[in-house]
């Protein structure tokens, strides 16, 4: 925003300090800045990279901390995970559960967030409070009663049970966040749409949603991740081995005394791939999408 001033030439030789272009900073400061960010980036990436590198080590050498691990790289771990275990089935289960959670989660939080942003209806304040309280009651303790409800509905050991459970976790935050995003879209657009002949649902669908892409991207990212890596509900609800999702399935590689690190590393890397894909599509919207959510209470 200040670039216009930046390019303005100094009218006459000014003191050295003033002549400096605003975007310049001393070399030392610049170095320190980049060094800090580089350090942070290394820390952010290292655990992931380490798992990735380890996944290429032969099973018997995985428990070594040599950094020169790529001297004998192997895809054996991946082969074992993909062909000797039900991993592909779990993976597919997870994809289905996460995809449904994402789609339904977006639909629910978007409609709910829109209603909260635009309409004054009885119970609105109460609903906002319920959202906060649902975040306070520990999931670990909800598992038992939700299990009972699911059992009564005959949904235990089915994917819908997980999708519904994950929605309870993700939707309150997402609806609240999207409400903040919708608040930044001028209300006049709704009014213009009403005069142009759209009803409330038409306005939502044809005018508001196309403008809320950043907010929806964050919601997609958040709902997907909630479902993708979840373990506790998955272990509790899914009973047949071939119906497990990834989070629950991988726990089978960690028996009490003999963790199968080679399977775990390879499995973890494979798990990260879809998450990375969703992340790739969402990342450029994350800052803009969360902006409003953070600023509005």
């Amino acid at each position: 925003m200040t670039t216009v001033e930046v390019s303005k030439p100094a009218p006459k030789p000014a003191p050295k300090q003033l002549q400096r272009r605003r975007s310049d900073r001393p070399l030392l400061a610049s170095l320190a800045l980049h060094a800090t960010l580089l350090g942070a980036t290394v820390i952010a990436l290292f655990p992931v990279l380490w798992i990735l590198l380890s996944s290429f080590k032969p099973a018997d050498r995985i428990q070594s901390s040599e950094i020169t691990l790529v001297d004998d790289p192997t895809l054996e771990n991946y082969r074992a995970v993909l062909f000797d275990t039900p991993f592909p089935t779990w993976f597919l289960n997870s994809v289905i559960v996460a995809a449904f959670t994402m789609v339904i989660g977006i639909a629910m939080s978007a409609t709910c967030g829109y209603a909260l942003s635009r309409f004054n209806f009885a119970g609105k304040r109460g609903l906002m409070w319920v959202f906060l309280i649902t975040q306070m009651f520990p999931v670990a303790i909800l598992i038992v009663p939700i299990y009972t409800i699911m059992a009564n509905l005959g949904l235990i050991d089915t994917k819908p049970s997980l999708v519904i459970a994950y929605l309870t976790v993700a939707v309150p935050f997402c609806a609240w966040m999207l409400r903040g995003y919708f608040d930044t879209i001028p209300k006049e657009l709704d009014e213009a749409a009403a005069l142009d002949g759209l009803g409330p649902f038409g306005t939502f669908w044809r005018v508001i949603l196309p403008l809320a892409r950043p907010g929806l991207a964050v919601t997609a990212f958040y709902t997907f991740l909630t479902a993708w890596g979840e373990v506790a509900y998955a272990i509790a609800f899914m009973q047949s081995r071939n119906k497990l999702t990834l989070g629950a399935g991988l726990q089978q590689f960690v028996p009490q005394f003999n963790p199968q690190w080679h399977l775990l590393t390879a499995g973890s890397v494979l798990i990260l791939i879809p998450a990375a894909v969703v992340f790739f599509f969402a990342q450029k919207h994350l800052v803009a999408g969360l902006t409003a959510g953070g600023t509005k209470g």
């Binding site: 960010l37 942070a40 980036t41 952010a44 990436l45 655990p47 992931v48 380490w50 798992i51 380890s54 990212f221 991740l225 993708w228 890596g229 979840e230 373990v231 989070g247 991988l250 726990q251 960690v254 690190w261 775990l264 590393t265 973890s268 798990i271 990260l272 998450a275 990375a276 969703v278 992340f279 990342q283 994350l286």
Partner: peptide, 18 residues
Amino acid sequence: LIVPWAVPGFVAAFGWKF
């Protein structure tokens, strides 16, 4: 720097435990 956000909790736990 946002990458860790995309890592499922238990994978992160496992990685750091490692």
